[in-house]
Amino acid sequence: MSVRIREMQDGDPPILHRVEHAAARLFATVSDPAIAAIAEHPPVPLEDFMPVLSGGPVFVACDAGSRPIGFAAALDMVDCLYLRELSVHPDHQGKGVGSALLDAYIRRARRDGAARCALSTFRAVAFNAPFYCRRGFVELPLDHAPQQLRDRFHDEAPPGLDPASRILMVRRP
């Protein structure tokens, strides 16, 4: 599949909002019922989604027709580019779109001189931590993480889910 990665443009947020909601349906395939329930959540209002797209670069994957099909939203932190979210529309998953978005994010971190790339995700969900492990990310135990990353990790923990189901991961850009 041919995919082009670009920075977010003015008209993208509503489309990315729909991509995020569609991508969340994949959680229905997870055996843990608490995580699978994420697929049943209604989409947050667009205005509640907008903060995910602020505070750092947002990379948009486009199909051959220049339509957004995925995105990676990052947050600039001290010495770190933090990946807030990576979502790919289900019609385009498994075709390298997520990897292309992740590569763009890592290249930006390298270009900007970040000491590390970081993210938090589900430990045992195949399209989460194992995906990032295959791309060079490793677990950073919370007690070894800078306070800023620990705070971000706790802020992103979905309510009602066991915190042990989540993992903080890092890699060098």
Score class of each variant (00 low, 15 high):
residue 1 M to Y: 13
residue 3 V to A: 09
residue 3 V to P: 03
residue 9 Q to F: 00
residue 9 Q to M: 09
residue 9 Q to Y: 00
residue 12 D to K: 11
residue 14 P to L: 09
residue 15 I to P: 01
residue 15 I to E: 10
residue 16 L to R: 09
residue 20 E to P: 02
residue 24 A to F: 04
residue 26 L to R: 03
residue 26 L to W: 03
residue 27 F to T: 11
residue 30 V to K: 00
residue 31 S to A: 14
residue 32 D to I: 11
residue 32 D to V: 13
residue 35 I to V: 15
residue 38 I to K: 03
residue 40 E to I: 03
residue 41 H to E: 15
residue 42 P to H: 04
residue 52 V to E: 11
residue 53 L to N: 10
residue 56 G to Q: 12
residue 57 P to F: 10
residue 58 V to E: 03
residue 59 F to M: 08
residue 59 F to K: 04
residue 59 F to A: 10
residue 61 A to E: 11
residue 61 A to P: 14
residue 62 C to I: 14
residue 65 G to P: 06
residue 65 G to V: 05
residue 66 S to M: 14
residue 67 R to Q: 15
residue 67 R to C: 14
residue 70 G to A: 12
residue 70 G to S: 13
residue 71 F to E: 05
residue 72 A to P: 03
residue 77 M to A: 09
residue 78 V to R: 05
residue 80 C to G: 08
residue 80 C to Y: 00
residue 81 L to R: 14
residue 82 Y to D: 01
residue 83 L to Q: 02
residue 85 E to P: 04
residue 86 L to P: 06
residue 87 S to E: 07
residue 91 D to S: 14
residue 91 D to W: 01
residue 92 H to N: 04
residue 93 Q to I: 09
residue 95 K to Y: 06
residue 99 S to P: 02
residue 101 L to D: 04
residue 102 L to Q: 01
residue 103 D to S: 10
residue 103 D to A: 14
residue 107 R to I: 09
residue 107 R to M: 05
residue 109 A to M: 06
residue 110 R to N: 10
residue 113 G to P: 09
residue 117 C to R: 01
residue 118 A to G: 06
residue 118 A to Y: 05
residue 119 L to I: 02
residue 119 L to S: 01
residue 119 L to H: 02
residue 120 S to C: 08
residue 121 T to N: 03
residue 124 A to I: 02
residue 127 F to Q: 01
residue 128 N to I: 11
residue 129 A to G: 05
residue 132 Y to S: 06
residue 133 C to G: 11
residue 136 G to R: 00
residue 137 F to S: 08
residue 137 F to C: 05
residue 138 V to I: 10
residue 138 V to H: 03
residue 140 L to V: 12
residue 143 D to H: 13
residue 144 H to Q: 15
residue 146 P to G: 03
residue 147 Q to S: 10
residue 147 Q to A: 14
residue 148 Q to D: 09
residue 148 Q to R: 08
residue 149 L to Q: 02
residue 149 L to D: 01
residue 149 L to F: 02
residue 150 R to D: 09
residue 150 R to L: 06
residue 151 D to S: 13
residue 152 R to A: 15
residue 153 F to M: 06
residue 153 F to C: 07
residue 153 F to R: 05
residue 154 H to L: 09
residue 155 D to E: 12
residue 158 P to L: 13
residue 159 P to E: 14
residue 159 P to D: 14
residue 161 L to F: 09
residue 165 S to V: 00
residue 165 S to I: 00
residue 167 I to D: 00
